[in-house]
Amino acid sequence: MKKWLDKHIKIVFALPTLIFLMVMVIAPLLYNFGMSFTNWTMSAKKAPDFIALANYIEVFKEPRFAAAVGRTVVYSFIAIALEGILGVALAILINRKFRGRRIVQALMLLPVVATPVALGMAWKLILEPSIGVANVMLTGMGFAARKFIATTSFESMLCLILIDVWEWTPLVMLMVYAGLVTIPQDPYESALIDGASRWQTLTKITLPLASSSILIAVLMRLIDLVKNFDIIYATTQGGPNFATENINIYGYLNMFSYYEFGKASAISVLFFIVVMAIGCGFLYIKSKVEVDY
């Protein structure tokens, strides 16, 4: 027995996790995949009919789905660009020694540790055009009042992007900072001797050597952004007039508001493929860009 254990110790230790993954992740995924080919509306009278790809065809035909995909892409692209640039810049900043650095670090992490739904509710009140504090401050400073998230224009989406950037940039900063502190001092000393400028040091040493942690941070945020739900649901629920509806909100409404089980499953499958593609694509890019030291 002991010999068998020694030989298969890796499997024994991994088994609980694998069983968990099978029961809680793989099995529901397969069930979801199967349901996506049916038209079940949760009826107790009527069994699900197999309708092949009809749900997928319906979803692809719907302008609302295409619009949700577009918004997901725009939202993710703008937010990841802002969070990436600001996160790296802040990480480089707090990597330097200055008085009160630890306090600054702790304060910046507050939005990350707060509950997203609670933050969403708070932002909803702040941005409320009639009684919210944001317009009070704007008009107090002489600017015109804004509609913020109470408009079907891009302003709503922009507000949500900025809330996301405010909330999650510190996480990017923290992850990049963790990478920065592991960079050895030798290349910097060599660069100093060779007379490299600060910009050259940043672009030729710091960023390439921190690329691994930057890419991981960006990948994690990108996947989170694509499947963003909590902030949007807590503030606009995808409105007004679907102006902030992303794929995740659209899928949720189909399942828990419209009870279109089959269609919602099809949306989930498509969504899963998109997120997997992003993940795999990013891992490929990471393997090409990463610098070993």
């Binding site: 992740v25 995924l29 996947i223 989170d224 499947k227 909590d230 949720y252 997120v275 997997m276 795999c280």
Partner: peptide, 10 residues
């Protein structure tokens, strides 16, 4: 990735 994908909307 799988776990992240499936920890969808709360």
């Amino acid at each position: 990735c799988l776990v992240m994908v499936l920890s969808l909307a709360a």
